[in-house]
Structure formats: structure tokens, C-alpha cells
Amino acid sequence: MSARHRLRSLGTFVLLNGLIPIRTQPLYLVNLLASPLSFLFFLTVVSHGRLIGFGITGGLILTMLSAGTGLQSDLTHYRHDLKFQDVVVASPVEAPVYVAGMALSELVYSIPGLAVFVVLFVVDGFATPTSVAVVVGVLLLVWGFATALAFTLATYFQDVRETFMFSPLISLVLTVLPPVYYPLSYLPGWAQFVARFSPTTYAAALVQGSVGQATVSLSTAAVDWGILGAVTAALFLVAAFKARWKEP
């Protein structure tokens, strides 16, 4: 496929999985707002408003992560129940184009959530040139690794129910345990150690550092970027070599 063909393909997937389904079910959009907003609400109430800032930065990260989780169940459903992956495999469309297009289409659903958090982010006075650059960079990396992970898993799952069973586990590892909604220092020592294994910990640390919710030295930030980047790259490699585009 030429670059122009790839672009056309990409746009088609965004239309097909992003824009068109909203036409039949606009409630999808509300649904994706629901979970980060309810966390924000919960956090604000419990902390008497003290942690609302963390709710906003955490909400941004969680929204990007849930774009990945959504992708995983969609791709599993399409592959397994509709045999849509087989239709795409036996066509000029290459796997990366399919995944990128589907990932972009999931992002369509995240736009309302992102918009709300971006507005709160600006209203709360978090937006500086540095923080905006950090947030954009971190969100792109989070979206990247979530997508790569989602695609790889989706080619292994035998049916959609499996993805529902896995989702809580994945969100435990990626969103509950890591200090996305509070500073790392709130966690007891052992939990801080465990959280170090989740890439979202570094994403959150970077974002929290950039808006002054936590103090980070330049060298810690460099390490955080390095780890987040390495994890994303590793998951891309796993997707490239281990995802089952062709069934073994």
C-alpha cells in the first residue's frame, strides 16, 4: 500500500469504529465520561477538595488508558465473533494500519473526557508551557503502550468474556495500585515498591511533577521518561513480534 492508501485505510477505521457507532449509540460518549468523572467526584468528596488537582491529572491518564482497554474488547469481539480480523488480514491492509486506525477511533470516545479534564486543568491554573508539553508527551506514551498491549492481548483472547475478566486485573495494575490519583509518598513502603513495576506510576509522577503536585528533580524526571519510553517501546516490540495477526 502506498502512503495515500494507508491514510485512506486509517480514516476508514476511524469512521467505521469511531464515528459511525456513535450515530447509533450516542450514549457511548457519556459512558466514557462516567468513569474518570466519578473518580474525580469520589476523590474530591473524600479529601474535602484537597486532592481535586490529583483527580484532574489522574483523570487525564485514566482516560487515555481506558481508550486502550476499550480497544482490547472491541478488537477481540471483531476478531472472534465477527471474523473481521480475518477479513482484514486477507486484504492489502497491514496490521499497524489496522491497529492505528482502531486506536484513533477509540480516541474519538475519549474526546469528551479529555475535553473536560483539559478545561479543569486550565481553570485550575496548571497549564504552563512545560506542563502542557509534559502532559501531551506522557499521554501519547500512555496511549501508545495501552494500544500495543490491547492489540497483543486481543489476538490471544478466545472470547470477549475473557477480556471482561482481565480488565479489572489490568486496571488494578495500571490504575488502582499506581499513584495516579495521589502522590506516591501516600503509599506505604511495600506498595511504593510494587507500584514501581507499573508504567503509569512514572506517567503520573511526570505529570504531577510538571504541575507542582510533587517535587521532582531533573534526574528523577529523566529516569521516569526513560522508563516510560522503554516500556512503551518494549510493548511495541511485543506487539510486532508476538501479536497473532496470522493464527499459528
Binding site: Y78, D81, L82, K83, F84, D86, V87, A90, S91
Partner: peptide
Amino acid sequence: ACVPQESRPL
């Protein structure tokens, strides 16, 4: 191009 057995349109 392929129509797989048991495939269904979106």
C-alpha cells in the same frame, strides 16, 4: 479478498 466462514458484517 476473503469471506470467511461464519463471518458477519459489522
